[in-house]
C-alpha cells in the first residue's frame, strides 16, 4: 500500500539522522602516516568482550576528522605548550625536562605500558606520578596538580610521541593486587542510578544514553580533547565524571582507587593503539 510505504519511509528518514554514525570500516590514519588499530580482538583477561574498539569508532565523521591531522586536532596546541615547558628550566636544581631526557621523543613507548609498577617506590605509577617525581626530586620544582593544565599538557606531549604504538599494560606480578582492585571498581554499581562502568561500556556500548553514543570506555586516547570542555581531559577527570553521572560520590582524582581503575581500564585496551591526545565529543 502506497500510504504505508510512505509512512515507513518517513519514519526511517527520521530515525536515520538520529543514529547516523560514521562508516564502521573507516580507518584512522593520523597525518597520513600513523596508522591506528581501532578494532581488534579483546585481550584474554577480558571476558565480557570479544572485540575491542577505540572510542574513535563511536564518533561522528566530523569529530573523527578532527583527530586525523595534527593541524585540525586542537589538542596539539597544548602539546606545543608542553614542548616549550619541556625545555624550560624550573626549580632549585637548574634543570629542565630536556636536561635529563633530551627530546620528548626519547620517551617513546612509555605511554603504551602505563600505568606500571615502580620498583623503587613500591607502587603502581601513572604518567602524572612520574612527572611529579621528576619535578620534586630531580628539578627541585613544585609538583603540578594531577588535573592542572600544565600536567594535562605534559601527559599529552608524552602520549603523543607514542602514538600508533600498541597498548601493552602488564597485569601480572606486583601490579596484580591493584589490577584486581581496579576490576572490582569496574564491576561495582555506584550512585543512585546503580550503574557500574560495565553497565554502560560493556553491556551497552553502541547503544545510546539520551543522545550519547556509548563507547567501550577505553582510555588509549587520553588525555583527550573533549569538544564539550574545549580542553584536554585527564583519565581521572573522566572517571570522576562517569561516577558523578551515576549520582554517586566519586573517588578523588589521583587517589589509589582511581590509579587502580586506570590500570584495569588501560589493560582492557591492550591491543589498541595509543591515540592520545585524541578528540572526543
Amino acid at each position: 500500500m502506497t500510504f504505508r510505504t510512505m509512512t515507513a519511509a518517513a519514519a526511517l528518514a527520521m530515525l536515520v539522522p538520529a543514529f547516523a554514525t560514521a562508516d564502521p570500516d573507516a580507518k584512522l590514519v593520523v597525518n597520513g602516516e600513523i596508522e591506528m588499530v581501532t578494532e581488534t580482538e579483546a585481550p584474554e583477561h577480558l571476558e565480557g568482550l570479544r572485540t575491542i574498539r577505540s572510542g574513535w569508532t563511536f564518533r561522528t565523521e566530523e569529530t573523527q576528522a578532527l583527530q586525523m591531522d595534527d593541524f585540525d586536532n586542537p589538542a596539539m596546541i597544548f602539546v606545543d605548550q608542553a614542548r616549550d615547558v619541556w625545555n624550560t628550566v624550573e626549580g632549585d636544581a637548574g634543570e629542565s625536562c630536556a636536561s635529563c631526557h633530551g627530546e620528548p621523543e626519547s620517551l617513546r613507548g612509555l605511554r603504551a605500558e602505563l600505568p606500571k609498577w615502580n620498583e623503587e617506590k613500591g607502587e603502581v605509577y601513572t604518567a602524572e606520578m612520574y612527572i611529579n617525581d621528576c619535578r620534586t626530586e630531580r628539578m627541585g620544582a613544585e609538583p603540578w596538580g594531577w588535573d592542572s593544565q600544565p600536567m594535562k599538557n605534559m601527559t599529552a606531549l608524552i602520549s603523543s610521541v607514542s602514538r600508533g604504538m600498541t597498548v601493552d599494560v602488564a597485569i601480572d606480578g606486583p601490579v596484580r593486587e591493584a589490577w584486581e582492585r581496579g576490576k572490582e571498581i569496574y564491576y561495582t554499581r555506584y550512585g543512585q542510578l546503580e550503574l557500574a562502568c560495565a553497565n554502560c561500556h560493556e553491556d551497552n556500548y553502541d547503544n545510546y544514553i539520551r543522545a550519547d553514543h556509548l563507547s567501550q570506555g577505553h582510555i588509549n586516547g587520553f588525555p583527550t580533547y573533549r569538544l564539550k570542555q574545549a580542553n584536554l581531559v585527564s583519565k581521572h577527570n573522566r572517571f570522576r565524571g562517569c561516577i558523578r553521572d551515576t549520582r554517586g560520590v566519586p573517588y578523588a582524582i589521583g587517589s589509589e582507587d582511581f590509579v587502580a581503575l586506570e590500570l584495569y581500564v588501560a589493560s582492557r585496551g591492550n591491543g589498541l593503539s595509543v591515540e592520545g591526545p585524541a578528540v572526543r565529543n
Partner: peptide, 9 residues
C-alpha cells in the same frame, strides 16, 4: 594567559 598559535602554510 599563555596564548599560543599554530599555523600551517
Amino acid at each position: 594567559e599563555n596564548v599560543k598559535a599554530r599555523v600551517r602554510a
